[in-house]
Design a protein around this nucleic acid. Sequence first.
DNA 1: GCCATGGCTAGTA
DNA 2: GCCATGGCTAGTA
Length: 106
Amino acid sequence: MTPFTERVIAIIQGIPEGAVMTYGQIAALAGNHRAARQVVRILHSSSRAYALPWHRVVNARGEIALREDAARNEQASYLEAEGVAVDGRGRIDLEKYLFTPDDSFG
DNA sequence: GCCATGGCTAGTA
DNA sequence: GCCATGGCTAGTA
């Protein structure tokens, strides 16, 4: 486990219920703003092992990024269960739901 | 070589 | 729509 990966995992574990973060935002916070795709890889391979709230991660446009319908529906229903509104095309309003860790430190 | 991205540009209306 | 990106991993030697 590299430091970058550890930071990504810690950041994802810190996303609160009812909020989302983007791949690029997580990568930037972990120290490399260009490593968004690595965040994808980590989610893909480590979500289960680390019990990550994978459903709270969306792309920069506020859309569910998963390809398969079944998986998209699963993510949408997890989000809605937490109070995050998802429209028919899998879009989330980032103005409302984006979690920016800086907020916590007022 | 993979990948659940992101940012920019061309092309349409 | 295109394609550069980058940390990681599988597969070979």
